[in-house]
Design a protein around this nucleic acid. Structure first.
Lengths: 241, 241
DNA sequence: TTGACATAGACGCAAACTGCATCTTAGTTA
DNA sequence: TAACTAAGATGCAGTTTGCGTCTATGTCAA
């Protein structure tokens, strides 16, 4: 049957139902490591496990709008970097019903990441530990700050997190995505710390400075960071190229 | 309302309905340019316009399986490179109803690209003309081979095509994706032609040879291409690293 | 049989990029 | 005012890349 013939005769009730949701990875940097905000599941299935905040996609709502709504409802935030990651549609990924989920990645500067924890929706920070180098890929571990054991994630949310790291690492070199994790004005050292956290590897300072300054994305503000007990670093601004 | 409470009380009939489809970009190289296989829409809406082949996602079917099904039903092919591109969910993208579509990219070697045209499902080849350099992005034009005017694409399928080109260009340098457009055994010149077609720019021959050979992906077969009227080039095989 | 021809494939060099050790600068603090 | 600390600059060597050119190896026609 052609797609058109199918659609003309489309009777939703004649078919099993399929639900569409968005899951949002709320990512930030904490203690020099990538971190994510998770909810502790209160009810079965997978009660007690950590899960990404998510929500159903409304019939009159775009995917992006649904992700923004989750960001707003669960974290009390809006206006931050939000990009689509991937769509997960394995059959048994949610035991309750067939749920296809579009994963989004939100990038939060440190202040927003901290603010989201106190906005009352119960978001808890967890550090992402990436056991592989470069863009090799594979499972990632998640643990609560100041605890040793790793947390278990509900459903296929560990896969979503791994993909978020993979995507970030890949885009870091050629896109301005790293700036989304920094406040409006920042020092080169802060920028380097963000890159090191995402890549999971230390970087060479002079080479990093040179690369960033040569790229033309950085606009010196003329101001310097206050409150240091040493030579105060220049503050830069991200200038969309 | 929490996600769980929502789900517990979930009554599909109480909400408007939302359909999930896959659309597949069947891409190949034709005359040194990226090309795609399209269907000519027979019925309204957008009758006469070209559209990507697609289909509804079954309730007991993964997204990947749905894309493979489309590849098989519409092109009579299977076993080729297939990757998820992006999920399109704008409100008015299909005038009939709310349809969210997961776009997939299939890469076909020249022989498979040609075979798909004669498999009876009415797929017509069209050349993709990319008016922007690098990964700038923007709309792309599509025209039938040996015709001058450009074809109009149905729905948001032009956006999907543009994204396919963008994704391919981005992945070409660091992944083995280019080999999916070549037969099992190929010459370095053929490989270079594929890269040039995707990138839309000529490449330097010695530099390209060096890069490819140094990467360790190429295994010499010891055989040489027959039927040339000049020095026969060595045939290589792609060796997954 | 042999020389023209066309493309494969190798070589050499210069420019650009990257990593790295080290040096200088500009603040605070004792 | 001298010690201290991190910012920021400099110089150099190893690597990668672009590119012109040279050699190799097949076919084909005289």
């Amino acid at each position: 049957m052609s797609e058109d013939a199918f659609l003309a005769a489309y009777d939703p009730d004649a078919y099993g139902r399929l639900a569409l949701t968005v899951d949002v990875v709320l990512m930030g940097i904490r203690d020099g490591q990538p971190a994510v905000l998770l909810l502790k599941r209160a009810e079965p299935p997978q009660a007690g496990l950590r899960a990404l905040p998510g929500g159903f996609v409304g019939v009159e709502e775009t995917l992006e709008a649904a992700a923004e709504r989750v960001l707003c409802d669960k974290a009390g935030l809006s206006g931050f970097h939000l990009e689509q990651l991937y769509t997960f549609g394995a059959i048994g990924r949610d035991p309750r019903m067939r749920i296809v989920s579009v994963a989004y990645l939100a990038l939060l500067p440190e202040a927003a990441f901290a603010a989201a924890q106190s906005n009352g929706a119960g978001l808890l920070p967890a550090v992402i530990e990436v056991p592989w180098a470069g863009e090799a890929g594979g499972p990632v571990a998640v643990r609560a700050p100041d605890e040793s054991g790793s947390l278990r994630l509900a459903f296929d949310h560990a896969d979503i997190l791994a993909l978020a790291i993979l995507r970030l690492r890949g885009k870091l070199a050629y896109s301005g995505v790293g700036f989304a994790l920094l406040p409006e004005r920042f020092t080169l050292r802060q920028l380097q710390a963000v890159h090191e956290a995402i890549l999971g590897t230390p970087l060479n300072k002079p080479a990093f400075r040179r690369r960033m300054l040569d790229r033309g994305w950085l606009e010196p503000t003329g101001e310097r960071e206050a409150g240091t007990s040493f030579r105060p670093p220049e503050l830069y601004r991200f200038r969309q190229p």
